[in-house]
Design a binder for these strands. Structure first.
Ligand SMILES: [Mn+2]
Ligand SMILES: [Mn+2]
Ligand SMILES: [Zn+2]
Ligand SMILES: [Zn+2]
Lengths: 139, 139
DNA sequence: AAATTAAACGCAACTAAGTTGCATTTAATT
DNA sequence: AATTAAATGCAACTTAGTTGCGTTTAATTT
């Protein structure tokens, strides 16, 4: 069933069903927190080439399959988009929690994001709420 | 007066009053948006050494004088902390706006952040609201 | 004012993240 | 089976950020 969903996801986004890209999506779907490039590489067996991995991350993000999690350190982390995002609309309505101890990042669906259209001259198209603290494993 | 404030800031944080660090704080105080390492380097004349600049950014952040702005791209941006932050308490109550056109990042004081203590097992110590869209200059 | 001390500086060398170009392979289409 | 464009893999590159270490200098002590 997950496999079905993955194949459909690739099909509708016109991404070819290669072993690596299927495996990559499986990894994302089986991980409840955000993954860095390094995390991904460790969890994958069908390739170890960084260019290949980066290109997959880039196109998945562009197509709205995964999204970057905003953070304050240098390494990007990616997580699967829980709602139906697309190349055009990449809007989420969930917050992200970053554990300051283990550095894991989680998507948190329990919180309603404040919806803001306009603030003093700014045109707001998207908003991200990032929470920091201790995750269940580290408390 | 700004100069007074800068000197006091350095004094209370036990940071030596070197020409560069004073200049760096002046730059931050005179800029209404977040600055990357590169931005800083361009605006500074007393040194061009990256190690010196990075070390100042790091210690200023640690002392609660400046803060990193959460983002989804690879370069960190720093902005001055508008409230009285310290080494112990680095808590802000303002959002950040990132312009998707000019990439400038602004601190936005107009928005009240939702204060969240606990969500499903997570212990929340800090929260960051990041807004994306068009800034006044780019609208 | 001179001596002391630790913070700050500056340079070289390094690590890690991420990108670009290009030739080769392969999934999907005809 | 032939075609084609997407995907892969390797080398080489760029940029962000760090580490080690010797030198300088701001601040403190005498
Ligand atoms: Mn998420
Ligand atoms: Mn700010
Ligand atoms: Zn944790
Ligand atoms: Zn702008």
């Amino acid at each position: 069933m997950n496999k079905e969903y993955i194949l459909e996801l690739l099909l509708t986004n016109k991404i070819r069903k290669t072993q690596f890209r299927i495996e990559l999506l499986e990894v994302f779907m089986n991980t409840k927190y955000g993954l860095s490039f390094k995390d991904v590489k460790e969890r994958i067996s069908s390739t170890q080439d960084k260019v290949t991995i980066y290109r997959a991350l880039t196109i998945f993000e562009k197509k709205g399959i995964i999204h970057k999690v905003p953070n304050t350190n240098d390494v990007s982390k990616y997580a699967i988009c829980p709602e139906a995002c697309s190349e055009k609309a990449h809007q989420h309505n969930h917050a992200h929690f970053i554990c300051t101890q283990c550095e894991k990042t989680f998507c948190v669906d329990e919180i309603e994001l404040p919806i803001l259209k306009k603030v003093k001259g700014y045109k707001i198209k998207r908003s991200n709420l990032t929470l920091e603290g201790d995750c269940p494993d580290c408390i």
